[in-house]
């Protein structure tokens, strides 16, 4: 899933302080699981903002709503009938949701309420770690299903670099060296000989390098 981290309340206050009718819009998907933008976080932020504005002596309406998703038309349509009551939306969805909300309600200011991070697994509650950067050309078959693009600090495709020490990355002893993991895994699969196959130059045009990306599936289009 996508993980997001909380944005400091003071930053959100700074973004919205000129508005008087604000909708805090949560999302029931990834940001709920990572406890950054679900119904509960919407409640906490809204309550804090209401108290803040009251304390400042300002009359500001702060309402709460959480949608099933903010990355699909049908769920975002659910707020069409109420959106006119507001002059700003703070979306606690990932950056995708913030943008899609803004696209749909073109004249409505929409502000991000979280910092969107990356694609993760939940290792334990409160700990999310990166596994995929969506490079668009998956090489996991070659690397024992451990991704050097997302898990090596240098995206080295023929690793490790010289900085791998005791299984850890040179940039931080808390980070596993992806290539140590790959070698361990190839060994466990009895495929260590594959290590010596050179990974060719990668086609990064399917990554960020190729500009904004699209997946088009004519077979499922209507």
């Amino acid at each position: 899933m996508i993980v997001a981290d909380k944005k400091p309340i003071e930053e959100i206050i700074d973004e919205i302080k000129e508005h008087e009718r604000i909708l805090i819009l949560g999302c029931n998907e990834c940001v709920t699981v990572c406890e950054a933008g679900g119904k509960k976080e919407v409640g906490v932020l809204a309550s804090a903002l209401r108290m803040y504005f009251l304390n400042e002596g300002k009359e500001v309406k702060v309402d709460e709503k959480t949608l099933e998703r903010q990355c699909d038309h049908e769920y975002l349509e659910e707020i069409r009938s109420m959106i006119d009551q507001y002059d700003a939306v703070v979306s606690l969805a990932c950056g995708v949701g913030v943008q899609f909300t803004a696209e749909k309600y073109h004249s409505m200011p929409v502000y991000p309420g979280v910092n969107t991070c990356f694609m993760v697994v939940t290792e334990e509650r409160g700990l999310w770690t990166e596994r995929c950067q969506g490079c668009g050309e998956c090489i996991l078959a070659r690397t024992g299903a451990i991704c050097p693009v997302s898990r090596c600090a240098k995206r080295v495709l023929n690793g490790p670099c010289g900085g791998s020490t005791d299984g850890k990355c040179e940039i931080n002893k808390e980070i596993d060296c992806a290539w140590q993991l790959i070698v361990d895994r190839l060994k466990a699969l009895d495929r260590l000989d594959d290590y010596e196959k050179i990974s060719p130059l990668k086609d990064w045009s399917t990554d960020r390098a190729g500009g904004p990306r699209k997946v088009i599936r004519e077979d499922v289009q209507q």
């Binding site: 240098k154 995206r155 080295v156 495709l157 023929n158 900085g163 040179e170 940039i171 990974s199 990064w204």
Partner: peptide, 22 residues
């Protein structure tokens, strides 16, 4: 190359389009 986090531009972007082998 050493990771940029060790140097004087720790907040910079790195490239690594190719690796040393490539």
């Amino acid at each position: 190359g050493d990771h940029q986090s060790f140097g004087d531009c720790a907040t910079g972007q790195n490239v690594h389009d190719l690796d040393s082998m490539q």
